[in-house]
Design a protein around this nucleic acid. Sequence first.
DNA 1: AAGTGGTCTAGACCACCCT
DNA 2: GGGTGGTCTAGACCACTTA
Lengths: 247, 247
Amino acid sequence: MAKTRQSTQLQPQPLYKKAELEMTGRIASGRWKAGSILPNEFALAEEFGISQGTVRKALMAMEARGLLSRAPGRGTMVCRTTPEESLYAFFRLRDAEGAMVVPVLRTESIEIGEPTEAERAVLGQKCARVARLYRVRENEGRPFVLEHMSFDAARIEGVADDSPLPSSLYPYLHDRFGMFIVKVHEEVTADVAPEDVAQALEIAPGTPVLRTKRIAHDLSDRAVELRQSWYRTDFASYQVELSRSDS
Amino acid sequence: MAKTRQSTQLQPQPLYKKAELEMTGRIASGRWKAGSILPNEFALAEEFGISQGTVRKALMAMEARGLLSRAPGRGTMVCRTTPEESLYAFFRLRDAEGAMVVPVLRTESIEIGEPTEAERAVLGQKCARVARLYRVRENEGRPFVLEHMSFDAARIEGVADDSPLPSSLYPYLHDRFGMFIVKVHEEVTADVAPEDVAQALEIAPGTPVLRTKRIAHDLSDRAVELRQSWYRTDFASYQVELSRSDS
DNA sequence: AAGTGGTCTAGACCACCCT
DNA sequence: GGGTGGTCTAGACCACTTA
């Protein structure tokens, strides 16, 4: 029966990988929008000219990456980053009991300007103007983090008109500009609060603070955000789970 | 042909999950030792009374967790935590260029004592004695981290006889005591160096340092180590990659 | 040359969700 | 009741490692 093996195994890329790249591209380009339901496995298989099992392998990999949500009876859906819950995918601050602190937005300001050398190095040499977003968040009435974010202004044209932006920035960027951030690199260090940070966080200058530098990447693995944050350490700390296998 | 579907789908656990648990248990118990080659997929399938494809699904999940290493022609091997390279699965300190710092062991001391309340809370109430390991590591001749580690002494009986221990502690624990650490929770905060830490790290008291608290878990998900570390921040920082999907 | 895992296909039954 | 993904099986060809 299974005689017609076309034996096109010469491809450097396995078929399931090609299917995954194709489908990831459709999400990145906005052709498949967040929340929409994909065609079923057999339809995709026919479209790609591969078998249903191979499509499934690609779909399951994308589900594992958090791009898709699958359920029997319902189908396969493009994940929405949207609701507040899902936003905190990259928010690692927890209190002493391990509970997530609720970071309520207190102040926000936006400016457009010339990129610095550091910003250009991250966002790309072609970046002509940067949009900078400054925020202070509070928890239970006390300020606890100051955030400085930089984006290529061309990629989020008109952002200033929406200010104040939603507290959950990434779902907003996804819905408004199709900027889907899926991975961030974060660098954590200890520092003493400089004057301006101390003032924003309402602590004495010289108090130790956590300082993080983040580079966020979109679906195409482009660096799209540069962020620096200063955290008070008196009621929350930075917590992560590390496993063998994530090198 | 495929008529004999026993339809025993009433099981709450899928067959591949049961196979994975069984095989994980064999590694945890030492029945399958690090570095050894497993029987091939068909042999395992016959032993478990399931098909080769189902065994493969379990094996691939274990490979993704970093427990197994698979390669065509060679077979499936239980990962060794051993060589220096692999040890640093949980070591997150990188210099400004993102290169891993080489943490050379400078001093080490071991003591056995009564568990504190905090140690008992993590290591278990049945823990009667704790083995504490104190280390200072240096990089390019400069001390940069002070580590305090606590274990249930009963689980690493005789550890003091091996002092000084290898620089890479986890491979040693794996080989010597079958303690296979696969996951750690780490909590990072900023602090000013207390007197003793400052002395060990050769910095002025009051200098800001990164302080991390780690709880390490073995294959059975037991908390087996409590560790507190203080890092100088002048030539390395704590760096992590975060992805959507790891909640 | 023999044996392994990697890829791919085809098809079965099931639980579940929706209308 | 029709359709979806979840599970499981069976079998094919391939590239690679090892000896």
